[in-house]
Design a protein around this nucleic acid. Structure first.
Length: 488
RNA sequence: GCGGAAGUAGCUCAAUUGGUAGAGCGAUAGCCUUCCAAGCUAUAGGUUGCGGGUUCGAGACCCGUCUUCCGCUCCA
């Protein structure tokens, strides 16, 4: 990361904290690693992003509906999805080479070596020990085996090992009041499974016909080994996902379609097109037959914001297998029963939030001649802005505040608006710029005579004279959802 | 998780070899002001991340710990 972009990112982060967008979690206790809270303005912005996504996906598509599944799910869900096995590896580090290995693989390698050396007995015995230890999840035993057999690090050649540790990316907790019969349940590491297990419920109760989609916005939790870069990778995060069910054989067609739709959506929130790109996955996950990321160029480089995966029928088939329930669809057009294929689009909402911040923030130089001047401005799309308008009396005397509050009273029925009478009018404009308010409405002496006000625009800093009676209509045209949605 | 760096007011930073923690911006209450910040007066806000140690005395030195950043590693 260059010095310049590094400074820019630091500015964005401190601006986010200074103006109430994002705070470190439980900061008075030193914070909690990789957990953040959204403040008064951050919550508004995040809610607007969610609403925009939901409207664009659910409201605009006849064949997409939204659900809200619980964070807790039956433990078997995660066996079926592969999360229990896939993320339960016993790891060990060599302190000299700083390399990390899977403990069971180190031992497997040793077994192979015994075999090639013709020590079949030893190999057999070690295999038995290993299987027993893995079966019992006995981590100290694994460490003991490594020590007993003098296994060394392939890189450093030393036996200077750490303890064997289990790396499971899923958070777990106990369900059930008493400790004896409590059951271990997980905090979901992805929202997708809540959709898959409800596939039939939604399909039948909603009379859905393939192709159709189920959308969901919700929290997910991953116990990341390392989590860094502000809200890029958090332990508790929010996803916005669509699982789109299609007839087998048509999935790649739909995959291409969703790739296009989703990029267009990102561009519609005001992003600079050169900052977005597709990044195809070379190595595909076990469940996918095509996968691409939509990446955004953050100050620290291109990073994934949204993933679009062709998940085949892997998930539904797994749940069929583990639950013993049929998860199939009868397609009247071709008179066939089948397990639908799935195209997934999955956004990290917190990352999306960060792209919007990075995209919008500017330290603008307004110097003219010898007069130095600058402002911090967040150029949010007006529809997404946390505060839509500020109503400002030019001075706080002569009845101007009363008139301003009257206008405020009408606007606040429809929008999040602010009132401010402190300090000079210029300073108040700048304060609103800093939180990204697209419009300021200023009440002056003329307003008292002819019921007009000035409407000041954040981006151009220009102002126009408008009638108070026209305000609701004008503001609605500028910040309503219609504009954004029509552009899709 | 390993290695390196850092942590002082809401933000950006000061504080001679260890000797009474300050400034600018921001905020609050006023004054001034008829449309683009930094004018005037006053005020608030810090056990220097936290805990321990050395010392007559620690923001500074030592140990531990937490958090953040950078690199490596990891990322179904």
């Amino acid at each position: 990361m260059s010095k310049q972009t590094d400074d820019f990112f630091k500015q964005v982060v401190s601006h986010a904290k200074e103006y109430g967008f994002v705070f470190p979690s439980s900061e008075i206790y030193d914070g909690l690693s990789a957990v953040y809270d959204y403040g008064q303005l951050g919550a508004e912005l995040k809610n607007n992003l969610k609403q925009y996504w939901w409207k664009a996906m659910v409201q605009l598509h006849e064949n997409i509906v939204g659900i809200d599944a619980a964070i807790f799910m039956h433990p078997t869900t995660w066996k079926a999805s592969g999360h229990v096995d896939g993320f339960n590896d016993p790891m060990i580090d060599n302190k000299d080479s700083k390399k990390r290995y899977r403990a069971d693989q180190l031992i497997e390698d040793k077994i192979t070596r015994y075999e090639t050396d013709g020590k079949a007995d030893k190999a057999q015995q070690l295999q038995t020990d290993l299987d027993a230890a893995l079966n019992d999840d006995d981590l100290p035993r694994l460490k003991a085996i490594i020590e007993e057999h003098g296994i060394v690090c392939p890189v450093s050649g030393t036996k200077n090992w750490t303890e064997v540790r289990q790396f499971n990316l899923m958070f777990s907790t106990q369900m059930g009041a008493s400790a004896e019969d409590a059951e271990t349940v997980y905090l979901r590491p992805e929202t997708a499974q809540g959709i898959f297990v409800n596939f039939l419920n939604v399909q039948k109760s909603g009379r859905m016909k393939v192709p159709f989609g189920i959308a969901q916005i919700g929290k997910a939790f991953r116990n990341e080994v390392i989590a860094r870069q502000f809200i890029m990778r958090m332990r508790e995060f929010e996803q916005m996902e669509l699982q789109f069910f299609v007839r087998p054989g048509t999935e790649l067609e739909w995959y291409e379609k969703w790739k296009e739709i989703r990029l267009k959506w990102h561009l519609s929130i005001g992003g600079n097109p050169v900052k977005y790109r597709y990044h195809d996955h070379v190595k595909l996950a076990h469940y996918a037959n095509a996968a691409v990321d939509i990446e955004y160029e953050f100050p620290f480089g291109f990073k994934e914001v949204e993933g679009i995966h062709s998940r085949t029928d892997f998930d539904l088939k797994q749940h069929q297998k583990f639950s013993g329930k049929k998860l199939q669809y009868f397609d009247p057009e071709i008179n066939q029963n089948y397990v639908p294929y799935v195209i997934e689009t999955s956004i990290g909402l917190d990352r999306l939030f960060l792209t919007v911040l990075c995209n919008s923030f500017e330290e603008q130089d307004l110097s003219t001649g010898d007069k130095k001047d600058a402002r911090s401005v967040l150029r949010f799309h007006p529809t997404l802005a946390p505060v839509k308008a500020a109503v400002l009396p030019l001075t706080k005397k002569d009845g101007l505040p009363d008139k301003a509050r009257e206008i405020l009273g009408r606007l606040k029925m429809d929008y999040n608006v602010q009132y401010d009478e402190k300090d000079s009018i210029g300073k108040r404009y700048r304060r609103q710029d800093a939180i990204g308010t697209p419009f300021c409405i200023t009440v002056d002496y003329q307003s008292l005579e002819d019921n007009t006000v000035t409407l000041r625009h954040r981006d151009s800093m220009e102002q126009e004279r408008v009638a108070i009676s026209d305000l609701n209509r004008i503001v609605d045209d500028l910040v309503g959802w219609k504009n954004m949605l029509a552009a899709l």
